[in-house]
Design a binder for these strands. Structure first.
Lengths: 209, 209
DNA sequence: TCAAAAGTTGACGGAGCGTCATTATTTGAT
DNA sequence: ATCAAATAATGACGCTCCGTCAACTTTTGA
């Protein structure tokens, strides 16, 4: 008679599998933060765990793959917020300002996660475009295409528009992490004004992709 | 009586030193392009050279450092062009459009270099902010500060303005590399219109940094 | 001409990698 | 409750690459 609650509905097998995977991911997050992405080894990660070295490879192929899982986990936390913001928005202006504000808020609060993910001691930025991240980009482009179709935005290359928005978002986010004096509010106001102003000034040339 | 021309003014010592260094850098460029940054090893690089493995370490500490040298070399080719463009520009509009156009032209023509530097098979982007690159960013910020001082641009956080311009430039450049149908002209026209329009729409709030 | 300085070489000890035979745990059928 | 098959964990092993260093070669300038 077990008073144990089956945390995961399924059997013990499934349960430990999930918990081991999470243990590795959690350990990785800490080790990456401490040593930097480049310097950490698979052994470092597994050593921060109760598991044996071989076990690592039952779950991930390499440290890149754990990193990708980490990135996916993050994207998985951000995307719903962005989606909520997108639904709440009643016009294009709100869509843009809500997106920037949400993203910057996340970056500023989840500081460590984002910093770890983009910077490391060697002054080298690593960014992996995981499925979740790419899906997020696609959602954005789709929305921009919709805005174009509705005539809210001049008919431009939606791909470029997305690129521009993403570029501004990530690069500004970087400064957000590095600069103490810069808040999410200010950054969001800046990015929104810049992007919206820019969009309205676009020529109506290049239509399709 | 040597008919040999001392390519480098100095003695033989200096000369081979310079040529070895260059040989390593050149080999690295090719190997990175072939195997991708992540997969290449120091031995791969040195094997593509007439030198011995130990010699590598007389010139660089690691493959990261060679990569940095490569990046610096690239930045060293781009910066003068950007500076020339900046001098030619007779107003802020020309400054912005000239900068984007020059950068995108370079990216499109020097395709391989840029692609190698930002992408690799593992779908992972690596970017190192080397001294040359940072210096380039600083120049840009200085110019933007000047434009603000002259009242051509609303008084905004020059740091953010730089970040935005850099973000747009790099992210659009990425698409430039990946998309066949996209030309440097079109990209430059897009980025210029977006950025200039955005700048003029900025609030005059946040003054200093 | 030659000894000191500078640079090159590749072999070596060490570290991390990914695999795999072995051992332990879980499962479902009886 | 028992047990054989399925599944997962373990850590030792062979391998590759790393960075160093003593021995050797080339250059320098006295």
């Amino acid at each position: 008679m077990s008073i144990e609650v089956d945390l995961k509905g399924r059997g013990k097998r499934e349960e430990t599998k999930a918990s081991n995977r999470q243990a590795i991911i959690d350990a990785a997050r800490e080790v990456f933060a401490e040593l930097g992405y480049g310097a950490t080894t698979v052994r470092d990660i597994i050593r921060a765990t109760a598991l044996a070295s071989g076990t690592f490879y039952n779950y991930f192929k390499s440290k890149e793959e754990v990193f990708q899982a980490l990135q996916d986990e993050t994207a998985l936390r951000v995307r719903p917020r962005l989606r909520a913001e997108r639904i709440r928005a009643r016009n294009f202006e709100e869509f843009v300002s809500g997106s920037f504000r949400t993203f910057f808020d996340f970056v500023k609060n989840d500081h460590t996660t984002f910093a770890t993910m983009r910077r490391n001691p060697e002054n080298q930025r690593v960014r992996i475009d995981t499925p979740e991240v790419i899906a997020g980009f696609d959602e954005l482009r789709t929305d921009l295409e919709l805005a174009i179709k509705n005539g809210v935005v001049p008919a431009t290359d939606a791909d470029l528009l997305m690129a521009a928005m993403v570029g501004v978002a990530f690069e500004v986010a970087n400064h957000l992490v590095l600069r103490e004096d810069l808040g999410a509010d200010e950054a969001a106001r800046f990015a929104t004004a810049l992007f919206l102003g820019g969009v309205h000034a676009l020529p109506k040339k290049t239509a399709k992709r």
